[in-house]
Write a protein that binds this DNA or RNA. Structure first.
Lengths: 228, 228
DNA sequence: CGAGTAATTGATACTCCTCAAAATGGGTGG
DNA sequence: CCACCCATTTTGAGGAGTATCAATTACTCG
């Protein structure tokens, strides 16, 4: 436990997990609801590190988590963002393939991988649910690859905004849990280009940025039209 | 069957599937060995198209297959290359997420998805094997995303060459089954940049290009050093 | 051997990264 | 409550690298 840098926060009131749970396989959600232990993790703390043995699996209940890998030249590639309802560390092999860090203070449910594995071996529905989570991770990764394959900073940023808006479902306006640097490392750009692109989108009247973390899509249909 | 453009080639002698089968879950291989029907597909023919219902799953026995998606502006993104021993179409939902095309004449084993699903429902080992195939697809997709995230044409091309050499295991020299255009669409570059980069790598003494399709890695350790 | 495709190579323009600096915002201490 | 500091974000100018346009060369197949 100590090796995972889980903040030993007091067990305050845990927010119920409403958002996005309908997306996930229900019997896996039930398993987490019953058997997982809940932790509160401070912003910036790591859930696990790349190449560590993957003993634990997580579900985000509140806040946001990101996974990333480091290159030898110091560059960082953010692989995925996780929002409430998402499972983290589920598609790892014997070792985690990336490092997971809390972008904001986050509430997560934790289970031992072996426990989940044991339950799945006697429950075909749970086994199937684990498969579906992997399939979902695959599709996310393919979409990410499609974003990274796009030429042009505007297309990449817009692709992210549209995807993120769809995930949060908080109307057209939403709050970004990540810094510009996180965004840049996710999109394969620099923070300068991300910042410039967002300013450019605002000047074009396509988005509104109330603050650097709060974005509103003013013309969602135009934005989506720029993509597929 | 007709809708899949499977070439109605005569059932000539089918090459045994030696290469890379050790990588794959054995009980899934056994299932294909027993229950699949074998087809020979001409180069350029499609196995399936994006958004079609995913009735069939494939295993490549000989030749090479690529999957791709099209953007509205006509650009094409190659999602993955498949070599002998690889399964194609396995991670699809109710519809295929991409179009699959034979890059060369290919020999493929075909099964109905429903048949595989039925067998898996009564065989936990097979069910687990399907999961492992999805996990493998996920890891492939993540590696692809990492390649696309790399700045610099040289890094992308080298990353592809190193990865492909590891997959073929044909010593340091191997034949590329895809065109420069396929490669460019996989790497998010133009054919001009890919061609220039390969010429540049050859001029640097890092690779040898006996023909445009045959590549030999002269300094594999240097090439790998350029990446991670 | 000839036609059509694929691949290579050159010149130019444009985009994004790099280096640099200013501005904004949040938090702490006086 | 205000002033200060630090981190984050924004903006600017210049340069490196790739896309684009164009043309030539190499290759494959009939």
């Amino acid at each position: 436990m100590a090796t995972y840098n889980l903040a030993t926060a007091p067990r305050t009131v845990i927010e119920p997990l409403r958002a996005r749970s309908a997306d996930q396989p229900c019997c896996l959600c039930d398993t987490f609801d019953e058997d997982a232990t809940t932790h509160i993790i401070a912003a910036g703390r790591e859930l696990f590190r790349q190449s560590e043995p993957s003993y634990k699996v997580f579900r985000v209940r509140a806040g946001a988590v990101a996974t990333y890998r480091l290159f030898s030249d110091g560059r960082r590639q953010v692989m995925s963002f996780y929002l409430p309802g998402d499972f983290v560390g589920m598609e790892a092999g014997v070792e985690y393939g990336a490092t997971a860090v809390a972008l904001t203070q986050a509430t997560v449910d934790v289970m031992r991988r072996s426990e989940l594995s044991d339950l799945a071996s006697s429950d075909p529905r749970l086994s199937r649910a684990l498969w579906q989570v992997s399939l979902r991770a695959f599709h996310r990764s393919e979409e990410h690859a499609l974003v990274l394959a796009r030429h042009g900073a505007v297309e990449r940023v817009v692709a992210f905004l549209v995807d993120f808006a769809a995930r949060t479902r908080a109307g057209s306006a939403f709050e970004l849990p990540m810094t510009r640097q996180d965004l840049a490392d996710y999109l394969g750009l620099t923070i300068h280009t991300v910042s410039r692109t967002l300013s450019q989108l605002e000047a074009s009247g396509l988005i509104e940025a109330r603050s650097s973390r709060v974005v509103r899509l003013l013309q969602p249909e135009s934005l989506e039209g720029m993509l597929q």
